[in-house]
Design a protein around this nucleic acid. Structure first.
Lengths: 215, 215
DNA sequence: ATGATTACTATACAGATGTATAGTAATTGG
DNA sequence: CCAATTACTATACATCTGTATAGTAATCAT
């Protein structure tokens, strides 16, 4: 990655903020107006420099077609194709068994999650679960945490999964030891039960976590 | 929500896909070309209808400035008022003492965080810190977690704060007992030291946490 | 010292783009 | 039946927008 100058970072940040706030990239003249450039070319030059250094992507000759290449990525080229997107994930208290079509009806609310931040690809079966209780305290998941899960994903040994037990969604660790049938383990000594997987439905595999701190 | 006609849903879907793929909304002429309209007005009429019904937002008279109002929401009107906002927070490995102007130079990268999700108001002094080590394991903050902090906020008893100790940012719990000077406590029995607050700089108070699960 | 890069001013232009007017045809609700 | 809505065609226009040419000045590495 080529280093950006201070000014170029300012311009990049303004473009990013405009995309986030207004939903579309600014024009050269809008950039020039913001920085009080008297010439459009100044903005165009900066954008050209940011393009050359790989920080900006998007087809030329098109209005407002700029998109940011995420600075957190090591490889600018691969990130260029992405372009940040937000997903609105339904939040459940308990997940109904089938996870049917009318999920929104059952959802308690919605969370907007930045997908690049969590590093996940969104599927229609990605959802969030508000954690109740401390059954997963051993994995440092506490009451009130928002766990992002993916439905239909194959769980691997050690993955945290949501399972329907006693008509309630509970988080458990998926245990798969060779020569034995897979089972679920609670990460709290107060809940030492092992549940065989065959008898229950695994509703999702954990891919991320969001914690709000009450202030 | 007013119902959309089939054709309007087609147009809406095309606009959404273009935004996702190309990073910017299509122009009226691009919409017309895709649907093989011979007149630009056809596309303009559709967009006007989608605007009227609340499915599309964005300033008029501006090129490619359309943005989709999320269909997952029950009430279009409320969703429009919300307008999701993202903040780009700089991510630090270690925070320099002063938290000076040229923060970006020191930042390791950027994370986009949805503010409504974390329930915080962004300030220019909001930043993220990637957690190294397990000094806060007692508060269920583990290695690799992304802690969102606010600089300049008054810490209260029990708040998690970032402090500069031995030229490195460390997370500690702020302890304020009456009749005693405030001090910092590590939430790990292996680091039992208490640091008096007067001798060091508190760089931020924790307001949120993001955890990516490696899959 | 010299060429390259950065960071601009000033002006200009072709084509892209949103918007408007005028009309046609089909469908729908009252 | 009639008015409103949908779904377009055809043409036109002002202005928005990206790009270009021609400079100036400062910094920096060779």
């Amino acid at each position: 990655m080529k280093t950006l100058t201070h000014r170029q970072q300012d311009v990049l940040e303004f473009i990013g903020q405009t995309i986030d706030n207004a939903g579309a990239a600014p024009t050269f003249r809008e950039i020039a107006a913001h920085f009080r450039f008297r010439s459009v070319k100044a903005a165009a030059d900066h954008v050209a420099a940011l393009r050359r250094k790989g920080a900006l992507a998007g087809a030329p000759r098109r209005a407002r077609a700029l998109s940011i290449v995420d600075a957190a990525d090591d490889d600018w080229a691969t990130a260029r194709a992405l372009g940040r997107r937000l997903a609105r994930l339904p939040v459940y208290g308990t997940i109904p068994a089938g996870l049917a079509e009318d999920r929104r009806q059952e959802a308690r609310g919605c969370v907007a999650v930045d997908l690049d931040t969590l590093g996940i690809r969104p599927t229609p079966r990605t959802f969030a679960l508000e954690v109740r209780g401390d059954s997963m305290i051993g994995r440092h998941i506490v009451d009130g945490d928002l766990v992002v899960l993916e439905h239909g994903k194959m769980p691997r040994h050690g993955d945290v999964v949501a399972a329907l037990i006693d008509n309630e969604s509970t988080l458990k660790t998926f245990v798969q030891e060779r020569g034995r049938p897979p089972c679920l383990k609670a990460e709290n000594p107060r809940y030492p039960r092992l549940h065989p997987v065959g008898e229950l439905v695994i509703q999702g595999v954990m891919v991320g976590l969001i914690r709000k701190v009450k202030v």
